[in-house]
Write a protein that binds this DNA or RNA. Structure first.
Lengths: 191, 191
DNA sequence: CCTGTGCATTGACTTGGGTTAAGAAATGAA
DNA sequence: TTCATTTCTTAACCCAAGTCAATGCACAGG
């Protein structure tokens, strides 16, 4: 698989690229394939990278009293900026691959070099950041406003792929409930 | 009250300011006082401004089935960037003053003018944005991971001022529960 | 093929928040 | 001060999620 094209496709969502710029993108970032269950960031470590999921699925989770609490699933074209990467303090949470995944890694230096060379990308970065931030706020709002049952129905509607590619007990954790409860919700809904 | 100094104080948190820069800050933004219960943004309207709370308290809330669902309280030095301001689509939520408040308003034009004149402020803006985004993610994580009782205890510990300046039924809404439940939680904790 | 492991379901019971309704306490205006 | 309104508390009952335990089911490895 030519993984470089995935990154070019990602940037193309936001702006038209000259052949020259395409070359730069192909050469700038580190792209790697990771096996299922590969841990990208461990709690306690300081993140050295931010990520962009090009293919596959990554989950973000805490471990509390030996239990995983899943906060997010990242899939195709989702950027991941760990809090630990921004603050350079030990991470409170883990990142690991739910599926075999193709992921682009960035560092502070690589990003700044990139921006210095190609300032025309800055408005795009800002736009992506704004959109992301708004999206996050709205999903928080939804979570707060809805019952677990509502949240499950909305998830099925908005991210049907997730339901199929992720085990149900992870979906339950993501929804903030126990697997048994999700089972009962499904029973209530589908019968 | 000399409200200009509040804005200068805000910027000084993040970088040292020359006398010249201080003059610019004093002249650039619109600062106004608002009475208690003034609505800054109404659901259905497209936001024309982003805000910075210099003094007082603003709440962000939806109205669902005639009930207010409070998502956030913004107090001294909290910036407010409405989703509607970013996307230029009608707002889903309201912003209104819980107390008489002093608030600085910004527009797209004023911000861009400001940046064009003083590019040295850009890294600061980016830093503020990053910090804000991380802070939001962490408070979402906390909300998901904790019971209403935990959430109340943490709020008392982390923002004790809010408990005093905001009516309890608003705190309850903010915690995602009914006033009656918060009453019971307090009884459980303090007796 | 059988077996072990991990995942999903079901049932009985507990617990804590929602609902409804009433009344007490605090606040503010006349 | 008095009265009205808003806010907070309490009680009884309901319901959905948590807990604990057993069972079913699918898939992988031997």
């Amino acid at each position: 698989m030519n993984t470089d094209n995935l990154l070019v496709a990602y940037f193309s969502q936001y702006m038209d690229l000259s052949p020259e710029e395409i070359e730069v993108i192909k050469n700038t970032d580190i792209i790697r394939e990771y096996a299922k269950n590969t841990v990208l960031l461990e709690a306690g470590q300081v993140a050295k990278n931010c990520f962009l999921v090009l293919k596959g699925c990554v989950r973000r989770y805490y471990i509390q009293d030996g239990e995983e609490r899943i906060m997010d699933f990242y899939t195709e074209n989702d950027p991941i900026t760990p809090a630990s990467y921004v603050s350079q303090t030990p991470s409170e949470y883990y990142l690991s691959c739910v599926e075999p995944s193709v992921i682009s890694s960035g560092t502070d230096e690589s990003t700044q070099e990139f921006i210095a060379k190609f300032p025309q990308f800055v408005p795009m970065f800002i736009k992506i950041g704004d959109q992301l931030s708004v999206k996050k706020q709205l999903s928080f709002d939804n979570f707060k406003n809805q019952s677990p049952e509502d949240r499950y129905q909305q998830l099925v509607a908005s991210r049907p792929d997730l339901i199929n590619r992720v085990p149900q007990y992870m979906i339950a954790s993501y929804l903030g409930i126990k697997p048994e409860s999700l089972s009962r919700i499904r029973k209530r809904l589908f019968s």
